[in-house]
Amino acid sequence: MNHKKKESLFYEILESNDDKIKRICHYYYRDPEGRKDIYQEVMTNIWNSLDHFRGDAAVSTWVYRVTVNTALTHVRKVSKENQLFLRKEQENLSELIHPEEESWQLEDYITQLECEINQLSMIDKMLITLMLEKLSMEEISNIVGIGVSNVRVKIHRIKETLRKKMIS
C-alpha cells in the first residue's frame, strides 16, 4: 500500500470511527491526559497495523480490535492501576445495574460496581467494555477471537458474579 493511499484510508477510518475509539479510551482513563495518551497510542497502532488490514473483518470491528488490544498492552504512565471507569449517563449501563435502584442511590451503586468490576481479570473487563458498547455477541467474538457461545457464557458468568457481589 503506497503512502498516499494509506493516508487517505487512515483518515477515512478515523472519521467514521473516532467516537468509538474515544468511548473505549474513556473506559480506561478518567483524566483527559491519560485518555489523550492512550488515544495517541491507538492512532499509532492503527497506522502501523494498516498494512496488515486485509478487509476480512468490518472496519469498525478491526478498529475495536486495535483499540482494545492497545488498551490491554498500554504502558500506564498516568494511572498505576489497570482500572475501568463507568459513567452514570452510559446508555447500556442497565445491563449491569439492578432495575430497582433509585436514582439518588445510583451514583453510589455505580461506584461500588466500578470497584467490583476492577477486581475482575483484564479479559473480563475487556468483555464488559465491549458489551457496554452495545456490540453483538458475533462482533465481540470477532474482536476477541473466541466462539460466540464462549462469549455468551463468559458474559453471563461476569454478570452473575457482579450481581452476586452487588447483592451481598
Binding site: N45, I46, N48, S49, L50, D51, H52, F53, W62, R65, V66, V68, N69, T70, L72, I123, M126, N142, I143, V144, G145, I146
Partner: peptide, 12 residues
Amino acid sequence: RQIDYGQSTILL
C-alpha cells in the same frame, strides 16, 4: 519488528 494490533486478542 511490528506487532499487528488489528488481529484478534487471542491471536495477539
